[in-house]
Amino acid sequence: MFIELLKGLLVTLELFAVCWVFSIPFGLLLCFARKNSLKFFRFLIDTYIWIMRGTPLLLQIFFLFYGLPLIFPALQVNDRFLVGAFAFILNYVAYFAEIFRGGLKNVDKGQFESIKVLKISKLKAVFRIIIPQMLRVCLPSICNESVALVKDTALIFSIGVIELLTTAKNIVNSSADIFAYVVAAAMYLFICSLVNLAFKIFEKRLKFE
């Protein structure tokens, strides 16, 4: 049982890691693109975020795996994990972009004025001044979203990927013993606690003291 659950956990962790690693930078990129682009692109970005946040993630996964190939047969991908991960990334990029937007709004206007007057290059300004100050504000929200992501990974079962929760469910169904659920819950709790801890450490380092 444990080995099976560990295998399921590995899939969950893999999905979490892939989604997190791609969603954070793309969310940041989208946030800056939205701020600096023309009205039309801003409208496109806003529409994307609106759709992603306004429809269920489960529906988005279904749409990408079952719906899209019906409209565009060339887009048929048989790797269920890949399609699922892609759907997660699309969804979480929108959420992270909104979180970063809040962080960016919190950076004092005077910081941008200093950057302009001191002729600091855009790249240096973004990476060394703006992003660290944004992160300080939005780290708790990123942490919340990351914990939600750990638990959301279970939704990938809907397209037939066997992850931790589905593994536990299969074990319970075949053994008529709910202990596998308890172990799975403990595993989720452990991962979420680790994520929380990592963010708390990072938050402390961003105190600028």
Partner: peptide, 23 residues
């Protein structure tokens, strides 16, 4: 031209030296 702002507008995430090195 250089300016000293009313609220200084220092970069709070950089040390005293960092505020100068970035310029």
């Amino acid at each position: 031209v250089g300016i000293v702002f009313q609220n200084y507008n220092l970069f709070p995430n950089l040390t005293v030296r960092g505020n100068l090195e970035i310029v």
